[in-house]
């Protein structure tokens, strides 16, 4: 039997084995006191899953959609197996939920507190992160264009931007709360400060990315500053600008959550994490972390998708 047919047979078997183990670990006789036999079974499943997944990753079916499906299934199954291990180890060994709650406990807590999570999401992500991100990136971009047009500003503004970027978020967050109050505008302000500089630096670098010949060409057409900017320099700067947008998408979420530790109304992801830690309900903290991870990944993925569409011509994306 070759590797690929082995994988096709093994994968469903491992899947069934995992389901059985999950069922077993939640039965009262095993929960918290799993014996050696159970752990041997888990170890066996682990080995079987390695064989199945490596076989699956070598599979190359003829049809393009099937190939895509197989390519997608390997990371999904691998991630699912890691969650499975987490679940059976935490439940089987009876790890206290304060140290590490099981994924199922986090999941049920997530499902049970959807309204709270929704409010926190709206407060932190929609209001603070998105508004701060848009304002920070836009102002960084505009200042970069101005700095490009006025050379002395470039020499003056870049060190200043560097200085602002070097300020720790823990230092500026309380100041922003003093300036803009407890509600989301102060968090958005922190996000603006954090996202402004990466955008400024990347755009300034990107604006000089256009080649010498391409600029000479524009000069030979007697094209003015703005025509050259729109038709040549901005498109050439797009990879740099998207780089900043991606960096900022993760920076913004971190900034907004951390800023909520320094005074906030009784809503928000950072606020929830800080008080639920104090109340020892770690499953809620983990539910917020899961929410932040999902929101952050989708945000990053969306920016990366737009980047792919806008810079399809860049050597790293050409097909």
């Amino acid at each position: 039997m070759n590797a690929s047919s082995r994988a096709i047979v093994l994968t469903p078997l491992v899947f069934l084995g995992c389901l059985y183990a999950l069922n077993l670990v939640h039965s009262p006789a095993v929960t918290g006191q799993a014996g050696l036999g159970f752990w041997c079974f888990i170890a066996f499943l682990w080995l079987a899953s390695i064989v199945a997944l490596s076989g699956l990753s070598h599979l190359s079916p003829k049809s393009a959609t099937l190939r895509r499906l197989v390519g997608l299934s390997v990371p999904v199954l691998f991630g699912a197996f890691l969650f499975f291990l987490w679940e059976v180890i935490v439940v089987g060994a009876g790890v206290p939920s304060v140290l590490m709650p099981a994924p199922s406990a986090i999941g049920s807590r997530f499902a049970a507190s959807l309204p709270v999570l929704r409010d926190d999401f709206v407060q932190t992500f929609v209001k603070s992160v998105l508004s701060g991100y848009v304002i920070g990136c836009l102002s960084g971009f505009v200042v970069a264009i101005i700095a490009d047009r006025v050379p002395f500003l470039r020499r003056g503004l870049l060190p200043l931007g560097n200085f602002v970027a070097a300020l720790p978020v823990i230092g500026i967050a309380p100041i922003m709360v003093m300036w803009f109050g407890f509600d989301w505008p102060s968090k958005a302000a922190v996000v603006v400060v954090m996202t402004f500089f990466p955008m400024l630096v990347n755009t300034v670098t990107g604006l000089s990315a256009a080649g010498r010949l391409e600029r000479d060409l524009m000069h030979s057409y007697a094209a003015g500053y703005w025509t050259t900017l729109v038709k040549l320099r901005l498109p050439a700067a797009l990879p740099f600008i998207f780089n900043a947008l991606k960096i900022n998408s993760t920076l913004a979420l971190i900034g907004a959550i951390v800023a909520e530790f320094f005074g906030t109304p009784i809503v928000g992801m950072g606020f929830r994490i800080s008080i639920e830690v104090a109340r020892m309900s770690l499953d809620m903290v983990w539910a917020e972390i899961a929410l932040a991870a999902i929101a952050g990944s989708i945000f990053y993925g969306f920016v990366a998708l737009v980047e792919r569409g806008a810079t399809f011509w860049h050597p790293s994306y050409r097909t």
Binding site: G211, L213, E214, D216, L217, S220, L238, F312, W313, H314
Partner: peptide, 11 residues
């Protein structure tokens, strides 16, 4: 003007 390289805009 025609340069040493085509200098076409890739986008």
């Amino acid at each position: 003007f025609i340069f040493q390289a085509p200098a076409l805009y890739p986008w």
